[in-house]
Amino acid sequence: MSTQPTQTIMRSGLGRARGLGSAKSGAAHWFAERVTSIALVPLTLWFVFSVFSLLGEPRAAVQAWAGHAMNATLLLALVIITFHHMAMGLQVVMEDYIHAERPRLLAILAMKAAAGLFALGGILAVIKLTLAH
């Protein structure tokens, strides 16, 4: 009678799970992806319609549009939520495809740094546009 090969893992279930998957912040990450995607539905529609009125227009038209308090508020929301959603999505892509620990961590940190800095740059630009108007 043949026996199945077995591998005894001498760690508790909790010990093996801690620091991995469900014992980290997966649920919060998953939920934040959904919440940001819901927020991006109206913001994306608003932005696409806004862009139609700005196509081919000079810089002054963009300044006047972004200078409007409501447009500036929605632009800030769009930039912040887009980059948050983007960073969470790209993180999952990197976690799935970069198998070695060190390059994966470096790639995620570099991506988060780029996303954070560009989001801040976008926020600063919107504030400049609305204050200059």
Binding site: A66, V79, M86, G89, V93, A119, G122
Partner: peptide
Amino acid sequence: GVALSVGAFILVWWLVAAASSD
């Protein structure tokens, strides 16, 4: 989603340019 990430950086480039100079 990955392609749109590139678009997000272009969006910021456009906003920063509009806020900076002609």
